[in-house]
Simulated scan of single mutants.
Amino acid sequence: MTADPTGPAVAGDRDPPAVDLFLLAAHGLPATVRYARAAEAAGLGGVWLAEHHFISYGQCPSATTLAGYLLGATSRIAVGTAAAVLSTRHPVALAEETILLDAVSGGRFRLGVARGGPWVDLAVFGTGLDRYHRGFAEALDLLRRWLSGAATVDADGEFFTFQDVPVVPRPARPIPIWTAATSPATVALAASRALPLLLGVHDDDAAKAAMLARYADIAAEHGHDPAAVPHASVHLIGLADDPAAARRQLRRALPPWLATTREYVRIDGTPPAHRDLDAYVEHLLRIHPLGSAQECAAHLAASAAVTGVHRQLLMVEGVGPAAVDEQIAAIGAELLPALTGTRQPSGSSPGSGSAVVQGGLQRLR
């Protein structure tokens, strides 16, 4: 039994992490809907949606809106945001949307937030650099209070000031918040409040473990039990007959997609720094699971042992649009059994799924 994603896991829990998908809407919104439905059919626990503005790297401008649609289009899986950009949103509006989605979905919605970047988004939405640099903690705390179950909330801060108002609808229970963290400041902020982290695809296991060790120290200083916090980690996945086949596929598909990150525009007009794409692709291929289901399962298990995360989010769009459906089917039919030692849940169709998997893995040769 995996840790309950709606609350802290039991300290010392050694069960395998839950496995979800991480979707950026890289191949368009209709494809993203199809991937989410496929994830449910494959037996995965959930999908998490990234949010971007004015950039084709990710084509979902509102993770909560798309989450609402996917919750209606599915019946079992959890749907989360990884992450809604808090620096361009009013925290009360985001909290109200969260409570609404939690209520109408029967508790299947998960909220993850991020600081975001110093992009032109801040100018378009009128929040500005001050909200980005100094206002994230205040916005996060206001969001937390609204989701805490309190009957009323007021604000008297630098960025948000209003009189005491009723929380309507009021959440049936405190709703947790995951926080995407790539900087020491955000790690410290989340740790001081015992908020679970969403760890990105860029860092290797050693870097993630170091980040979580720092988190644990700060959380303990504030009286929290860091072992009870259910962190999540994103992993690029390349299921294929062998690692070489996965590398070939990803070397073809990743560079043109990653090149779209160069569409970011800084709010001050200066050009953002650009990665060496070939070097970055090779870095990703070194640190993420590639190859057969058994090889990928071993990699994910080893990663979980190093980091201690409770949830692993698999980034499937990197293989390119022609292969994603087969990757998702392979995750359900081959990877999940390799990770857990169990077969697909009843109600799925392992026969047809296995056929799709075999076709997909042949394609990746």
Score class of each variant (00 low, 15 high):
residue 321 P to M: 06
residue 326 E to A: 14
residue 287 I to H: 14
residue 296 C to W: 07
residue 224 H to T: 05
residue 332 G to C: 09
residue 354 S to L: 15
residue 257 W to N: 11
residue 216 A to E: 02
residue 304 A to V: 10
residue 260 T to S: 13
residue 46 G to P: 01
residue 120 V to K: 09
residue 323 A to D: 14
residue 135 G to D: 06
residue 212 L to V: 03
residue 224 H to R: 04
residue 169 P to K: 14
residue 287 I to Q: 14
residue 225 D to E: 10
residue 150 A to P: 04
residue 12 G to R: 15
residue 206 A to P: 01
residue 358 Q to S: 11
residue 21 L to C: 04
residue 170 R to A: 07
residue 114 A to K: 09
residue 88 T to Y: 15
residue 154 D to A: 13
residue 71 L to W: 04
residue 303 S to K: 15
residue 223 G to W: 03
residue 216 A to F: 02
residue 351 G to D: 15
residue 251 R to D: 10
residue 156 D to K: 02
residue 46 G to H: 00
residue 204 D to S: 12
residue 126 G to H: 02
residue 45 G to R: 06
residue 260 T to E: 11
residue 301 A to M: 09
residue 68 G to P: 01
residue 42 A to G: 03
residue 163 Q to V: 00
residue 313 L to G: 05
residue 280 Y to C: 04
residue 105 S to A: 13
residue 5 P to K: 08
residue 123 A to P: 00
residue 225 D to Y: 05
residue 222 H to P: 11
residue 121 D to A: 06
residue 320 G to D: 10
residue 352 S to N: 10
residue 3 A to C: 08
residue 361 L to T: 14
residue 332 G to S: 06
residue 168 V to A: 07
residue 58 G to Y: 06
residue 337 P to C: 04
residue 94 L to A: 10
residue 130 D to R: 00
residue 180 A to H: 07
residue 281 V to G: 03
residue 127 T to A: 02
residue 345 P to L: 05
residue 105 S to P: 08
residue 278 D to A: 15
residue 216 A to L: 05
residue 142 L to Y: 02
residue 71 L to Q: 02
residue 234 V to E: 00
residue 264 Y to L: 10
residue 245 A to Q: 08
residue 72 G to C: 12
residue 341 G to V: 14
residue 180 A to D: 11
residue 189 L to D: 02
residue 96 E to F: 09
residue 343 R to S: 03
residue 21 L to N: 05
residue 45 G to T: 06
residue 147 L to A: 15
residue 129 L to A: 07
residue 150 A to W: 12
residue 346 S to Y: 12
residue 44 L to C: 01
residue 6 T to A: 14
residue 261 T to F: 00
residue 70 L to D: 05
residue 314 L to V: 06
residue 337 P to I: 04
residue 319 V to C: 13
residue 283 H to M: 05
residue 308 G to M: 05
residue 338 A to K: 07
residue 256 P to N: 08
residue 109 F to G: 03
residue 120 V to C: 09
residue 284 L to D: 15
residue 17 P to E: 03
residue 172 A to C: 01
residue 245 A to V: 09
residue 32 T to G: 06
residue 128 G to Y: 00
residue 20 D to H: 08
residue 237 I to P: 03
residue 102 D to I: 06
residue 94 L to T: 13
residue 47 V to Q: 00
residue 90 H to N: 14
residue 157 G to Y: 00
residue 159 F to R: 15
residue 148 S to Q: 02
residue 60 C to N: 11
residue 65 T to V: 13
residue 80 G to T: 13
residue 91 P to W: 12
residue 73 A to V: 02
residue 183 S to I: 05
residue 363 R to K: 13
residue 75 S to E: 12
residue 33 V to D: 05
